[in-house]
Amino acid sequence: MSNLFKGLMFNITTIIMSLVFLMSSLVHGQSQETVVHVEAIDHAFDVDAPNQLPSGWVTFILSNQMASETHEISLVKLPDGVTHEDYLTDYMIAWETLLREYQDGVLERSGISDRGNEILPAWSDGLRYLNARGLASPGTTAERTVYLEPGEYLLICWLKTEEGIIHIMKGMHWEFTVREDTADSPVPNPESRITLHEKEIEIDWAPVTGKHAFEVELNKNGNGRSYHNNLHLVRLEEETDLNEVNEWMDWYKIGGLKSPSPVEFLGGIEVERVADNAYFSVNITEPGDYAWIVFVSQGQGLYKTFTVD
């Protein structure tokens, strides 16, 4: 098969997918959610969407039904002129070096920033990690809605295998472009609100089984940065130690975010420190004991436990 024919078939397939995706947003002439369905596989993403999306509100649904490890969706926007390949090679190879030197004891944690300045590409400061860490354990589904501006993006998973290899380096990434045209997708209107204070998780919600949509409000300090920028839902067992879970969520630790996870994760969010709010949904299928966790780096996490009857 000639390269010309292959290229033609690829373009036709892309056009068809884009048309199907567009039609799904125009049903009955009403505003429809722009939804990207993502199936996690050890270690890849199977994405049911074209790799060109309209700008605006987009809902990402991560299904982790087929994988044996915990996974996440992390969204990064690339600086102008930086390619997906640049990120996956120059940037990620530098991060592998940083992680190895730190975990081998060659590099102190306090020295990671300076060492990063030496080996990371000059354009690294221009990366924007918009939304991440909606951790989903095997058999669960995580969902979040985020506003995407035009540009080049990657959908990635920063968790590690049992051997300590970053999932991105195993092939767990999906490259896509956000176009200038804006989708007619509605602004999220969740049923419940969670406010993250400096030392408290405030929640207006009655815990019952079913799917629940949340808006997370991020209180800020005097410098305009949020006290906390993440929130996660976990299912508790009798032996669950939330302090150990908080330590496991520290990516820099030798066992941090490394398979297997110490608890069942049911979704959540992590956003930029300057963000005002975030949107996500979780699905609670069974009665039991649960906890909201705010990961705190080099400190004790913030927790709020509850029971679903």
Rank of each mutant, 00 (worst) to 15 (best):
A142P: 14
E143N: 02
G81F: 04
L302I: 10
K199D: 12
G288S: 15
E272V: 08
K6P: 04
V178G: 02
S113A: 06
S2N: 06
G256H: 12
P287R: 05
V36T: 10
G301T: 14
D184I: 13
R128C: 08
G171W: 06
I201L: 07
T70E: 07
T34P: 00
S261G: 00
N3S: 09
D204M: 01
E239R: 15
I156W: 02
Y279V: 10
A183G: 04
G301N: 11
L22Q: 00
G255Y: 05
H167N: 15
G299P: 04
D42M: 01
S55T: 15
Q30D: 07
L196R: 01
V178H: 06
L218R: 00
W205V: 03
L26K: 15
W292F: 15
D289N: 09
E175M: 12
P186G: 02
A206E: 15
G126E: 12
T141C: 07
T13C: 02
T161F: 10
L242C: 00
E237Y: 13
L155D: 01
Y303G: 05
N283I: 05
Q103V: 10
G255F: 00
H167P: 03
P260M: 11
P287T: 06
W292I: 15
E202R: 06
D125G: 06
M249W: 05
E264A: 13
A40T: 08
Y129L: 09
G81I: 05
D204T: 09
E108M: 10
D309V: 07
T145W: 08
G288H: 11
G224Y: 13
N223D: 12
V234C: 14
V274F: 10
S74R: 10
F280H: 13
K220Y: 11
T83N: 07
I156H: 03
D309Q: 14
V36K: 08
I293G: 00
M249V: 00
T140P: 00
W158D: 02
R193S: 11
Q298E: 15
P150D: 03
E152I: 01
S2C: 02
V47F: 13
V208P: 03
D48Q: 12
G268A: 04
A291C: 09
N51D: 13
S226C: 14
R273T: 12
P186V: 06
S68F: 11
E217K: 15
L8N: 01
F10R: 09
V38I: 15
W205M: 05
L154D: 04
K220R: 15
E118K: 13
Q300A: 12
N223C: 02
L257C: 14
M169D: 15
Y227H: 14
E198F: 05
E69R: 11
T307D: 07
L266N: 04
T209Y: 07
D86V: 03
W292H: 11
F5P: 03
T177V: 09
Y129A: 06
D90Y: 07
A40S: 13
V76W: 09
R100M: 08
E163G: 09
